[in-house]
Simulated scan of single mutants.
Amino acid sequence: MVWLEIVGWVGSLLVIVSLTQARVLRFRVLNLVGAVIATAYNAIVGIWPFAVMNGVIAVIDVYWLVRLHRERHDADVYAVLEVPADDAVLRHLLTSHASDIARFHPSFAVADPAPSAAFVVVRGDELVGAVVVRAAGDGVGRVDLDYVTPRYRDFTPGEFVYRDSGVFAAHGFRRLVVDGRGPAEAHAYLERVGFRSTTDGWQREVAAAA
């Protein structure tokens, strides 16, 4: 049947497309859908070795999707490291992803004056993001960069930086501000990490250090 052949090709195509994805979550979702379709197709036509193989792949994808969603807000999985402005690891991250950063933060420049506070977010031994804040005067810290590497773009590791307001208070900040421009997805993220929309952009109060 032609429709069955089409379904089989769709499953194969999705598996192939999934392997081109840099984002770990998108890869798992596409791979899962393709594997499920391929499992059904091969079972219907009686090619059991491939049906079993794709069924096992689907189970593995489900396992990783559950684990990734369970860990996405887990502070035991992600760690935040405050680093000096001239930190070599931070500079490496910024220069290695300069073109990608320019897409989402066109006004950010590595050569700008040294930040007042800089943080890198790690998952195990993997760098997944960075937050750079510069003093704007009168206790205000301007978030110049809140960046996530493509692999973890579907997650929000920056939230771990904002969880501990004490790190900002220690630098004398009473308030953080962010440029209000950007897609609705970025606005939803800002709301999740405690910012509120105002006429002067997005702002977040910083609790005094304990």
Rank of each mutant, 00 (worst) to 15 (best):
V36Y: 01
A38H: 06
A38S: 15
A38E: 03
A40F: 14
A40G: 14
Y41K: 09
N42I: 11
A43T: 15
A43G: 13
I44C: 01
V45R: 13
V45E: 11
G46W: 09
G46A: 12
G46S: 07
P49V: 13
F50W: 13
A51D: 03
A51C: 08
V52L: 12
M53I: 09
M53A: 13
M53F: 15
N54S: 07
V56E: 06
A58Q: 06
A58K: 05
I60D: 04
D61N: 15
Y63V: 00
W64H: 15
W64P: 10
E71I: 02
R72M: 15
H73V: 12
H73A: 08
D74F: 03
A75C: 06
D76A: 00
D76N: 06
V80I: 00
V80P: 08
L81F: 13
E82I: 02
V83F: 03
V83W: 05
P84E: 03
D86E: 06
A88D: 12
V89Q: 05
H92S: 13
L93W: 08
L93C: 01
L94H: 06
T95Q: 11
S96K: 11
A98D: 07
S99R: 10
S99W: 01
D100R: 12
I101V: 14
R103S: 10
R103E: 13
